[in-house]
Design a protein around this nucleic acid. Structure first.
Lengths: 261, 261
DNA sequence: CATCTATGTCCAATATAATGTACATGTGAT
DNA sequence: ATCACATGTACATTATATTGGACATAGATG
């Protein structure tokens, strides 16, 4: 998970980009880190990171926490995030949909979106029979690793998909290489059928179901997913897909609709 | 609500600071704006704002919404804010406390914190008899205008308070000037008593009650407040304060305690 | 038609931000 | 004691980011 390094090496990075690289890195790590550690792990000059961290601390974007000079995301980010959530008011409806899915299926239900050019679980409702879920809420994951990923990029052309997804993200967690053309074929299939299901690539014991939640532009702004034990998933496939489609219908056009204006 | 302009005029502003100035401005406005409008209203060079807005759009920090090139806070901010909330896990306990207060008093209850050098309502639970609340959730308000403000700066020295609060924030909404020494005296009184109550300065018909929620460092990391009609507030003063203290006790040390680590 | 404002783009000038390097300190291992 | 490493600070250099202003367009107004 190294620095993106933009395009050319040897160029200076822009402060803003580095700053958000730091913030994203802390989000991924989900823990407070020393500036020195941040610099080492994202491959940025230490002096730059110290400079930026101090600026971000002054702005309340970062906060000291965890002692020994460690920093983590700050309160200001919470306020800004809350303003976003308030504007694009999807939380309430989203929770209701997850609740409904949990009631009807007793399985783990997730609401997922793109985070830049990766996939992330925005909200999750654990099933009645909890097992170790491979991806936590808020972690970003390569798009090709997920069922939802097939739906979330379906509005792009083949070429756009290849440009959009970082090439190394086609390397699966087990080390295998997923041929981009294979992935694209699955995207088109998912687009036609309005759903995608498969045995998880990330672990060896779950089956994943994903259906699109359509935004104002008509394409998948988010997905609703079920993550089930493989036997259960295959046994209840039709019923689970019905539940998902019903729940997604209740959200359609919602995730991107502003509350006012 | 003009730009902070930092210290000296005529100096170039740092991109990072301008960027967060833009974000904060959009949060205050709570609506999408055109880059041109942003530039005009925060008093920044148009070319700079266009440049920064484009950078922020690329990073997902801002998003196009509302048409005609208008931009608002982006999804990335939501993710970062959610990570903050997840780390400093105060939401669940906070909601429970507000719920409890609402049950016991039927009045409007608020959970408030500092946002930089101003005050903001983080969460609110409307009372049974709703009236027009003068400050919305997420709006930042001068510290001296609020009861909570007396508690939230009580850990600072007199001199630090004067440095911390922007001088113009002592100008009350009705145009009167609140003498900083008067304010400081009220801060010290609130500190001794562990509470502050007054007839609202912002409107003419409510009474405000505030008690501290203490963080790890022992000082007020947040406050719990009740906003009541003046008659009710004065009639039920003792009971309301008991309710507040009970609820705050349940939150103490919570707002700043990390879930892990 | 002429004028004014709102909006967005482009570009050169220069103030300065990002960086590499040196320095200082503490800690643990050899 | 000596070395290696982690951590933080200070500063000069130079690549570049910020800025002012020119330019283009579209509506609105008189």
């Amino acid at each position: 998970m190294d620095a993106v390094q933009d395009e050319a090496a040897g160029k200076r990075a822009r402060g803003l980009d580095r700053a958000f690289e730091i913030l994203d890195f802390l989000r991924q790590k989900r823990q407070a880190l020393k500036p020195n550690e941040i610099a080492a792990q994202i491959g940025a000059p230490r002096s730059s990171v110290y400079e930026l961290v101090n600026l971000l601390l002054q702005n309340g974007i970062l906060e000291f926490t965890g002692g020994e000079g460690r920093v983590y995301l700050g309160r200001k980010l919470y306020f800004l995030g809350a303003a976003y959530e308030n504007h694009f008011d999807f939380t309430r409806e989203c929770e209701a949909a997850l609740e409904q899915l949990a009631d009807e299926t007793r399985e783990t239900a997730q609401f997922c979106m793109l985070d830049g050019n990766r996939y992330t679980v925005v909200r999750m409702r654990e099933g009645a029979r909890p097992f170790r879920i491979s991806t936590d809420v808020g972690q970003s994951v390569p798009i090709p690793w997920t069922a939802s990923g097939r739906l979330l990029v379906a509005h792009l052309s083949d070429q756009e998909i290849l440009t959009f997804i970082p090439p190394q993200d086609f390397r699966l967690p087990n080390g295998e290489w997923l041929e981009p053309q294979t992935f694209i074929a699955e995207v088109r299939q998912a687009e036609r059928e309005g759903l995608f299901t498969f045995n998880s690539i990330v672990d060896s014991f779950t089956h994943c179901f994903a259906v699109p939640v359509r935004g104002e532009e008509g394409h998948a702004a988010a997905t609703l997913c079920l993550v089930t034990p493989r036997d259960d998933g295959i046994a209840n496939r039709d019923r689970y897909l019905d539940c998902l489609k019903k729940a997604a219908a209740g959200l359609d056009h919602a995730p991107t609709r502003p509350k006012r204006g």
